[in-house]
């Protein structure tokens, strides 16, 4: 009798303790970078702090849609990774929390300006320049000249060889559109898009699809962020990466704390940790070729050398706002996409 009782007591204690452990520090992380990178970030943070991380990986568009849908009862704490525009938009809609991290002084200026343009509701964690990649085998098979500039893609012999995403569905393609407007001016920028339209074989839905098609030999040229093109080349596909000679725009991958996060302290701990040099160095382990935002972090030697790329002064405030975005997309819809090919 006594025995049973003590066994019962122990098991009850064990279970309550189990329940107690389940309520230990935890963090729900929405991650919009590639799977391995997300995994490494989550596991390394667990090791560094002992906080349990529940990580869900989804594209930035999907995550934004989910955060919006969950707005009245947030389930996530931190949103890490993914292109900056949806982060800015989430800030604009008040879905994310303002936070000034003590780590800010270690960051590049572009990361801080990303934060400032969103009222400190987001911050830059990496950046990547826009460019394109081509399939060397297909280029040779079709006797095409090696493209070096944006303007090269307008040559008539490239007809049916260029792929880019649809700016209506992809942030990458919207960055392309906005970059052209900033490089060439609005009228000439749209002139460029019209010329390009004649050579496009398909507007894909997702941003990185064009370079994957080029990798598989389904298209000669794919307009994408250069780190995506590098990843294809490193994976073994016959891809050459081009930093266009006229200069190019770029994205700032961002991180935000979700408003009303259930684990606010843990969220801030992750935020600070993710901005540190050692956390950003984890990118090297998983073939992520973006440029980290911490000045002390290392960049992969396979990554495109940012010092040789002519970067334009991309106006994230103007071109990230929903009004300007709507206007440009509508103009593209009416003036460019309706033209015969």
């Amino acid at each position: 009798m006594k025995l049973t009782r003590s066994v019962l007591a122990t098991s009850v204690m064990a279970m309550t303790m189990g329940a107690g452990a389940a309520q230990a520090d935890k963090l729900t992380l929405y991650c919009s970078a590639q799977e391995e990178w997300c995994q490494v970030m989550a596991r390394s943070f667990e090791e560094a702090t002992g906080i349990d991380v529940d990580m869900t990986r989804k594209s930035s568009g999907e995550t934004f849609a989910q955060i919006r849908a969950e707005a009245s009862n947030p389930k996530g704490d931190v949103w890490w990774g993914g292109t900056g525009d949806p982060h800015l938009q989430a800030a604009e809609e008040g879905l994310t929390e303002e936070y000034l991290s003590p780590m800010r002084e270690q960051l590049h200026d572009w990361a801080i300006s990303q934060a400032e343009s969103a009222g400190n509701r987001t911050i830059g964690i990496y950046s990547g320049a826009l460019g394109y990649g081509y399939n060397t085998d297909l280029l040779a098979a079709n006797n095409l000249p090696e493209p070096k500039c944006w303007a090269d893609l307008l040559k008539p012999e490239f007809k049916g060889h260029v792929q880019m995403a649809n700016p209506n569905s992809s942030g990458t393609a919207y960055t392309t559109l906005a970059s052209m407007v900033q490089i060439f001016g609005e009228d000439e920028g749209f002139g460029f898009m019209k010329g390009l339209h004649a050579n496009i074989n398909q507007y894909t839905k997702s941003g990185s699809a064009p370079i994957k098609a080029a990798g598989r030999g389904e298209s000669t040229v794919g307009i994408v962020f250069m780190h995506d093109a590098v990843a294809q080349a490193v994976a073994g596909f016959p891809i050459t990466v081009v930093a266009p000679c006229e200069g190019t725009g770029y994205e700032i991958g961002s991180m935000s704390i979700i408003k009303g996060a259930r684990n606010m302290d843990e969220a801030k701990a992750f935020y600070d940790w993710a901005l540190s040099a050692e956390a950003q160095n984890l990118a090297l382990q998983v073939n992520a070729f973006q440029v980290p935002s911490n000045k002390g972090a290392q960049t992969s030697d396979k990554a495109p050398d940012m010092s040789t790329i002519k970067l334009i002064d991309y106006d994230f405030v103007k071109y990230g706002s929903s009004d300007e975005r709507k206007r440009l997309l509508q103009k593209w819809d009416e003036d460019v996409s309706t033209l015969p090919q």
């Binding site: 594209s59 568009g61 999907e62 934004f64 849609a65 919006r68 525009d85 949806p86 938009q89 649809n166 700016p167 209506n168 569905s169 992809s170 942030g171 393609a173 919207y174 398909q202 507007y203 839905k205 975005r325 997309l329």
Partner: peptide, 18 residues
């Protein structure tokens, strides 16, 4: 370039238009 309703719906929600 053959757009159908189901993909259009998906990208209307998760795409750049939101």
């Amino acid at each position: 370039n053959f757009d159908v309703l189901s993909t259009e719906i998906f990208f209307a929600i998760v795409g750049a238009q939101y």
